[in-house]
Nucleic acid binder design. Structure first.
Length: 423
RNA sequence: GGAGAAAUGGCAGAGCGGUUGAAUGCACCGGUCUUGAAAACCGGCAUACCGAGAGGUAUCGGGGGUUCGAAUCCCUCUUUCUCCGCCA
C-alpha cells in the first residue's frame, strides 16, 4: 500500500513510475487525493464537535456538583444535539476511510527507476547468464520420465490420494528433498539468517499484511470453517511476525529463514507449464525474509541476489538472472530479480527463485516501523527471496545431471546432505 | 468440547460512572551531588491521526450499546489462565 502522504506530495512522479507497469494510474491517484482532502476536512469538523461536547460534559459534572440542576439540564440538551451531529459525521468519515482504503488496495507498488517498462515476460531484462547449457552424447530425458524409471517421484499416486499437483516423493527422491532443504537452510544459517518453523496456515490479517489479500484470494487455499488460509509461501508468516511493531534500535537488520511447504491453487494453469514438477499445488521452499532500514535495503537486496547465485553454482546448475519489467513485477514489489535454471530436456528456462524489495509497500500495511535517532517513527523496508524453491531445482538437477545409463549424479556440494552420490 | 476467572502504559500493578491519558513501583533517559560509580534527590518517559503552529481527537484486548459523561455498566467477539473431558 502506498503512503498517502507520498501520493499527496509526489503524485506525478508516482504516475510516471507506475506507467512502467503498462497502466495509467493518474485518475485513481487523483481520486485518492480528492477523497483524502474531504476526509481530513470532515474529520476536523467531527473533532471540533467532539471537543465541544467533551467540554460540555465536564461542565455538566461541575454544575451538578454545585447543585445547579437547571443549568445542567439545559447543557444536556445542547449535548444531545452535538451528539446527533457527531454521529452523522462519524459515518461520513468512516465511509470515506473505507473508500480510500479500497482504492489504495488497488494501486500497486511503484517500480524502481532501473526497472524496465514492459507488459509481459518478454520485456524482462537478462542481467546475467551463468554457465553454459549442458550437452549430451545421448537424448536427455525429461524429469518426469526419469522420476518414473528411478521411482523417485510418483505423480499418479498423488492424483489418486489427493489430486493433480500433489506428487509423492519416494525413496531417494524423498531423501533428495530432505537433503536439499537441509542444504539451503544450512547455507542461510551460515549467512546469518535465523531459522523459523512457522505455522502453515495464517489468518486474514496476515494475508492482508503481505498483500495476498484482498483481491488475490484465488491463489490461496481457504479453510472456510476457521477462516484461515494455507500459506502460499513462508514469506507470509515470517514477515507478519513484525506486523504492528516498532523496532527501537536504529541499527537493526532482521534476517529470517524458514522451510515450509507452500500451497497454491494456481487456477487456470495448463499444458507443458504444469507437466511433472513444473507447477504444483504443494511444493517445498526455503525462504529468506529481511526487514531493513531504508538506507540499507539496497545492499540487502544485493546480498540476497548473491546468496542465491552461490546456491545455484554449488548445485552446478546453469542459470540466468532477470530483472523483471514493470508489467511482470508482482503487485507489492518495487524491484524483483528472477532466477531461472535451464532445463536440458525440456529446453526451457524454469523459474526457481524470485528476490524482491518491497520498500515501504508491505511495511505500510503491516505497520512495521522503526524509531530512529530523531525519535521519529518511520516505515521499514521489507525484502524476501526464495533460496530456493525445490521442485524445479529437482527437475533441473535430474535432467541436467543425468547419465546415459539413466542414473543421476548428485552435485558434490549436496552429497553430504543427501547421503549418496547417485540415484 | 463443558464450567469458571481474567485482559489497563516497556514490565509489574491501582482505579470499578465525572478535571484519569490513567496512581504507584521497576526499567529507561536527562540533571544535581561525587575524583568516578552506587545511593539519594529533581525532572522526563505511550501510540496514532489532523493541524504551519497553538492545539485538537482517538486509544485501558477488538467491535457495538447505555449515559450529558465509560478504563469503570450492558451485549458480542477474540485471547489467556484454572478445573473437567478428549487426544498426538
Amino acid at each position: 500500500m502506498l503512503e498517502i502522504t507520498r501520493i499527496r506530495t509526489a503524485k506525478d512522479e508516482l504516475v510516471e513510475g507506475l506507467k512502467k507497469r503498462g497502466v495509467d494510474y493518474s485518475e485513481k491517484l487523483d481520486e485518492v487525493i480528492q477523497l483524502d482532502e474531504k476526509w481530513r476536512s470532515k474529520k476536523a469538523e467531527r473533532e471540533s464537535i467532539q471537543s465541544e461536547s467533551n467540554k460540555l460534559s465536564k461542565s455538566i459534572g461541575q454544575l451538578f456538583k454545585e447543585g445547579k440542576a437547571e443549568e445542567a439540564n439545559a447543557a444536556k440538551e445542547r449535548s444531545a444535539e452535538l451528539k446527533t451531529q457527531e454521529h452523522a459525521l462519524k459515518e461520513e468519515v468512516n465511509e470515506l476511510e473505507t473508500q480510500i482504503q479500497h482504492l489504495l488496495y488497488e494501486i500497486p507498488n511503484v517500480p524502481q527507476s532501473i526497472v524496465p517498462a514492459g507488459v509481459s515476460e518478454d520485456d524482462n531484462e537478462v542481467v546475467e547468464e551463468h554457465g553454459s547449457k549442458p550437452t549430451f552424447s545421448f537424448d536427455p530425458k525429461p524429469h518426469w520420465e526419469l522420476a518414473n524409471e528411478l521411482e523417485t517421484i510418483d505423480f499418479e499416486l498423488g492424483v489418486k490420494v489427493t489430486g493433480a499437483g500433489f506428487p509423492f516423493f519416494t525413496g531417494k527422491g524423498a531423501k533428495l528433498q530432505r537433503g536439499l532443504i537441509n542444504f539451503f537452510l544450512d547455507e542461510a544459517d551460515k549467512a546469518g539468517y535465523t531459522e523459523y518453523i512457522p505455522p502453515l496456515v495464517v489468518n486474514e490479517a496476515s494475508g492482508i499484511g503481505t498483500g495476498q489479500l484482498p483481491d488475490k484470494e484465488g491463489q490461496m487455499y481457504h479453510v472456510v470453517e476457521d477462516d484461515l488460509y494455507l500459506i502460499p509461501t513462508s514469506e507470509v508468516p515470517l514477515t507478519n511476525i513484525y506486523r504492528d511493531s516498532i523496532i527501537k534500535d536504529e541499527g537493526f537488520s532482521i534476517k529470517m529463514t524458514g522451510y515450509t511447504p507452500c500451497f497454491r491453487r494456481e487456477a487456470g494453469s495448463y499444458g507443458k507449464d504444469v507437466r511433472g514438477l513444473n507447477r504444483l499445488h504443494q511444493f517445498d521452499k526455503v525462504e529468506l525474509v529481511r526487514v531493513e532500514h531504508p538506507d540499507r535495503s539496497e545492499k540487502a537486496l544485493e546480498e540476497m541476489v548473491d546468496h542465491v547465485k552461490v546456491l545455484l553454482e554449488k548445485l552446478e546448475l546453469q542459470y540466468r538472472v532477470l530483472r523483471l519489467c514493470g508489467g511482470d513485477l508482482g503487485f507489492t514489489s518495487a524491484i524483483t530479480y528472477d532466477f531461472e535454471v535451464y532445463s536440458a530436456a525440456q529446453e526451457r528456462w524454469l523459474e526457481v527463485s524470485s528476490v524482491s524489495l518491497f520498500e515501504t509497500f508491505q511495511a505500510n500495511r503491516l505497520k512495521l516501523r522503526f524509531k530512529g535517532e530523531d525519535k521519529k517513527t518511520q516505515l521499514c523496508h521489507t525484502l524476501n527471496g526464495s533460496a530456493l524453491a525445490l521442485p524445479r531445482i529437482v527437475a533441473a538437477l535430474m535432467e541436467n545431471h543425468q547419465n546415459e545409463d539413466g542414473s543421476i549424479t548428485i552435485p558434490e556440494a549436496l552429497r553430504g546432505h543427501v547421503g549418496f552420490d547417485k540415484i
